[in-house]
Nucleic acid binder design. Sequence first.
DNA 1: CGAGAGGTTGAATAAAGTCAACAAACGTGG
DNA 2: CCACGTTTGTTGACTTTATTCAACCTCTCG
Lengths: 259, 259
Amino acid sequence: MQTTREATIGLLSEATRSPKAKPSLNFSLQQVCELLRLPYDEQPGDDHFVFKHIPYARDQRVFRSGAPFEVLYIVHSGFLKLVSLDAAGVEQVYCFPMKGDILGTEGIHTREHTLEATSLSDCGLIALPFDLLMSAAKGHPELEQSLYGILSEQAKRDQSTIHMLKTLNAEARVARFLVMLSERFAGMGYSSSLFTLRMTREEIGSYLGLTLHTVSRTLSGFSEMGLVCTEQKEVAIKDMGALKALFQPKESTAQRICA
Amino acid sequence: MQTTREATIGLLSEATRSPKAKPSLNFSLQQVCELLRLPYDEQPGDDHFVFKHIPYARDQRVFRSGAPFEVLYIVHSGFLKLVSLDAAGVEQVYCFPMKGDILGTEGIHTREHTLEATSLSDCGLIALPFDLLMSAAKGHPELEQSLYGILSEQAKRDQSTIHMLKTLNAEARVARFLVMLSERFAGMGYSSSLFTLRMTREEIGSYLGLTLHTVSRTLSGFSEMGLVCTEQKEVAIKDMGALKALFQPKESTAQRICA
DNA sequence: CGAGAGGTTGAATAAAGTCAACAAACGTGG
DNA sequence: CCACGTTTGTTGACTTTATTCAACCTCTCG
């Protein structure tokens, strides 16, 4: 039971992680669109839309379940976890947001957050006051479409998660997790075959609907099979193809060859 | 082939509070908002927004995976299933839309449907051309908010599904399914304790991430325990409280300690 | 009336969870 | 800087749970 000293420490932590990259404090609408990979069509008056960059240290809460919803956040740097809390206070990891992801959309409907976001590393978030965003969308039809698109896209990701939980066994889930992480890192310009997990085995398990034991065993299994090398939180992917084959639709031919 | 006579049976059209005895072919913006349980603020010119009612017979496809996305549908009457198809063409039931539910939102982002909707009974749908809906939203700030809200709400339902798949065992899943169905029926003015399943055991299993065998066994178990009576697709709920207790967070002292 | 889809049930099997022990890394305070 | 407690991770033995395979039943519907 961790009683947190509140999220007000944010500004102090800036020096902790980013010595050189001095984060600018404000982001333009264009920069926001870039981060979200949205088309941007400049309009007069856009310079009124200025969004604040907020740094967070590791293990800080960005928003908690039950908090009033006012702003969305875009991840500019760092890694987080989005969790739900059940009645007993047990965390359930919903996703691991990273650069370019948007946070807080679950609060739009009820105007209250139903999930809790926590930083797994130092990170920089950009705050998008929802009302301000709506105003910006007014002058940008393509942005408006995109906002619906973002929600629709999230829904598809949820769908994919549901599909995983219904159809994949532990091995396939962990393989999928590694491959998707790898692709995420590649998209950010990092190595796709060598990276650091920011979350614990338990958090991975919670995300995948498995126990930490099963995650650990499965990773050990992959090591023995020569698919990956793991050392603590460091992961080296040795055979991406084999990993993908573990969760992607099985070709009937591939099955024979393996046997 | 979509010719249907009497798409709606007596009870259903009665529940719509429509002044006309037969289903009207057109729906106003106000009627649409009512169905969606959205606030409606009349504006001059709203009578330009007219939405068509489309009847479907049982076992018809409303849209198929891969079809271009143009319209959303609201369920006015009847029952459907929304499924995804994997590479092998195997169905995966995503949800069972019924009155007041909105269909097709997964297509917004890519402008292409990724799911397939099929009627499980005769039904009446109202077609909402997406562009027209956007126009209507322009003049109705509260409607615009609501549209985001609808997507946000769907996301929450997905979240809930994910939570179920990660944490509940077969018994709890089936119990949850029955209770949620029951509440849905109650909301439509039907009996909450006596109703007809429109889907097969296999479809229930697909929805819950279980095999049809497990669903069947679990229902038999409930019968033995005196929680329900089932006879084919007819279900009578005998002990709602016990059913709820099977999946709802068990309250314990832990809750108070946290506060 | 017969074929076929849908449903139930039993026995064997496979998969992941639980319980438990231990080891390795971390970080905090002396 | 080291000692020590805490957190995190690994692994083994056992148990529980749901799946698979199979048989059989019962409704429909043509």
